[in-house]
């Protein structure tokens, strides 16, 4: 997988700011009531790497999130994982809409 850090600048337009502050400890994944693989850290990591294709591989996953905020509450780095999920949803919805218009 190749790293494309430029991607993050796109995400900023959708209200994502703190994702790079994550140091990948995994608290969010383990505390998440979904108990689902590496969610949401997986998406945080992909966002850091700019792995757009990985995020778009299965975008539906984003909507599993309950937006309950427990990950953000317990994040030791205040990296706000909830913010990223919401931002990615906005990013994906925007993409869908734009692809529809094309």
């Amino acid at each position: 997988m190749a790293v494309t850090p430029e991607f993050f600048e796109q995400l900023e337009r959708f209200g994502v700011a703190k994702t790079f502050e994550c140091f990948n400890c995994g608290t969010c994944a383990a505390i998440c009531p979904l108990v689902y693989e590496h969610f949401p850290r997986k998406l945080i990591r992909y966002a850091q790497l700019g792995a757009l294709d990985r995020i778009l591989e299965n975008p539906k996953e984003l909507w599993r999130c309950l937006h309950c905020g427990l990950c953000t509450q317990t994040c030791p780095r205040e990296a706000n994982p909830g913010e990223l999920i919401l931002g990615l949803r906005r990013f994906v919805v925007d993409r869908w809409r734009r692809s529809q218009h094309v």
């Binding site: 400890c25 995994g26 608290t27 994944a29 383990a30 998440c32 317990t74 030791p76």
Partner: peptide
């Protein structure tokens, strides 16, 4: 390599540790 997210009392005095296994399996 994991930050433990939560601890819970389990059967017979055991303590359950919940963390993300970063390379395998995910939440464990």
């Amino acid at each position: 390599k994991a930050k433990v997210a939560s601890l819970a009392a389990a059967e017979n005095g055991a303590v359950e540790v919940c963390y993300e296994d970063q390379v395998n399996g995910g939440v464990t």
